[in-house]
Design a protein around this nucleic acid. Structure first.
Lengths: 84, 84
DNA sequence: TAGGTATTTAGACAAATGTCTAAATAAGTT
DNA sequence: AACTTATTTAGACATTTGTCTAAATACCTA
């Protein structure tokens, strides 16, 4: 859960998740949506991947990233049990 | 919301919130629950305070901290809208 | 095989972060 | 007033983080 909190603690990464909510995207497409170099975006994707917030699949020369929300349940549960 | 994510991105601060869920505590009582110096805990409490995750009230020479969960709604909403 | 496109890895660097010790501030006690 | 207790502030320091450029890797196409 530590990794998920860490991954969510960055505006760019949160924006990436929002993008991926709409549709799967290649690393390049994601990078184009930001004013950040591709290596930096690649690093962000790696952090999101380690947190299991995204999955990736290689298709030819492209790498397609998808949102994966199952780990969010842990966070949601943690927050809810803090509230009530 | 940035400040809330930032505040939540630390195990000690998350543990502090858990403690405060049970009961209000003075800064000193909170510090005793951790293997961290009082100044460090004070700094954590400041970060939680800036994120509006805790409120504090001075009572004599003590400062009593309380959990404040209203800002968690923003986070919860953000997470839920990412899921569905 | 050579050249082009997509992505990641490596290494550098400034800024942010978590921790500490020492000192300052504030309040209570004698 | 002097002393004790509770907490914060200031400053230092090592580690982590987000970014960059340059180079490496992987795949595609002619």
């Amino acid at each position: 859960m530590n990794k998920v909190f860490k991954a969510l603690n960055d505006q760019t990464r949160r924006d990436i998740l929002r993008l991926l909510k709409e549709k799967d995207m290649t690393a390049g497409e994601i990078a184009e949506a930001f004013n950040i170099t591709k290596p930096s975006i690649s690093h962000h994707l790696d952090i999101l991947s380690q947190a299991e917030l995204v999955t990736s699949e290689k298709q030819g020369q492209f790498v397609i990233y998808s949102l994966s929300t199952t780990v969010l349940d842990d966070i949601l549960n943690w927050l809810v049990t803090l509230k009530d």
